[in-house]
Amino acid sequence: MASTYSFDIVSDFDRQELVNALDQAQREIQSRYDLKDTKTTVELGDKSIIINTDSEFTLDAVNCLIQTKAVKRNLSLKIFDYGKVETASGNRVRQEITLRKGISQELAKQITKLIRDEFKKVQGSIQGDAVRVTAKSKDDLQAVIQRLKQEDYPAALQFTNYR
């Protein structure tokens, strides 16, 4: 048995689930009494969500609503990177929420260092915005997955291509 096993550590989200969550939030904004007449808009771009509403109070309510809908659709809240609240025309407020996708170089170095320090028979290598983990034993890979789930990283980690 000279074969090696591997898996990838990635940070990604299901875009269709995000679209569905934002659609549900938009419907609830239009029907909720406290948000109905605020002319709130939620726009999904390629890498961000832009919320435009009439006050910071309603902005907080909309953010809470989006988070609730995202959690119900099994999306991690770590994919949202909230920008600062800006004033827009007509006494309105605007906020841009950047969507996090991929593992940053610093986080990838941190993960490979943890793997190198704690697991002697496992190798971790950075491949773009993912980390490839290889070992001769599937049990070692399972131990790495369990150890990484214990850590609280700023990105939502998924373990894919397990072979």
Rank of each mutant, 00 (worst) to 15 (best):
I126R: 02
R94F: 03
T53S: 00
L157R: 06
D129T: 06
T40Y: 02
K84I: 06
V122W: 07
V19D: 11
R163S: 14
F7D: 05
G90P: 02
L44M: 07
S11K: 03
Y82S: 05
Y5H: 14
Q105D: 14
Q158K: 13
Q95S: 00
K72R: 15
G90N: 06
K101D: 04
N52D: 03
Q26M: 11
G124A: 15
L35A: 07
L141I: 15
D139C: 05
L65V: 12
A108M: 06
K109G: 12
V131P: 01
K136D: 13
S31F: 12
G124T: 06
N74K: 14
Q95G: 00
Q30A: 12
Y153L: 11
A70Y: 04
D81N: 11
Q24S: 15
F13E: 02
Q67N: 14
D46H: 09
N74Q: 15
T4I: 12
D34G: 10
Q105V: 13
Q142G: 07
K39C: 01
F119I: 07
D81C: 06
Q146L: 13
V85L: 02
R100V: 08
I145K: 15
E43H: 03
G90Q: 04
G90F: 02
L77M: 13
T40A: 00
V131E: 01
Y153M: 11
N161K: 10
G45Y: 08
R15T: 08
I111P: 00
T41E: 00
T160C: 08
N91M: 03
A61C: 08
V144N: 04
A143S: 11
E17I: 07
L114D: 09
V42F: 04
R92Q: 03
I51A: 00
T98H: 03
L77S: 08
N161D: 11
R73Y: 10
R116E: 13
K113R: 13
D81Q: 09
C64E: 15
E151P: 07
K136L: 14
L148C: 14
I51H: 02
D140V: 08
F119A: 10
K109L: 09
A156C: 05
V122G: 10
D152S: 15
I97Y: 00
E28W: 11
G102C: 08
I9N: 05
S104Y: 13
K136Q: 15
N74C: 08
G45I: 02
S76L: 04
Q24D: 14
T40N: 01
K121D: 13
S104T: 15
D12K: 06
M1C: 13
I79G: 04
L148T: 11
R100H: 05
T38Q: 00
D129Y: 03
A25E: 11
E118W: 08
T4Y: 11
T4R: 07
T38A: 04
I29F: 10
V131S: 01
K121G: 15
D54W: 04
Y153E: 07
Q142C: 12
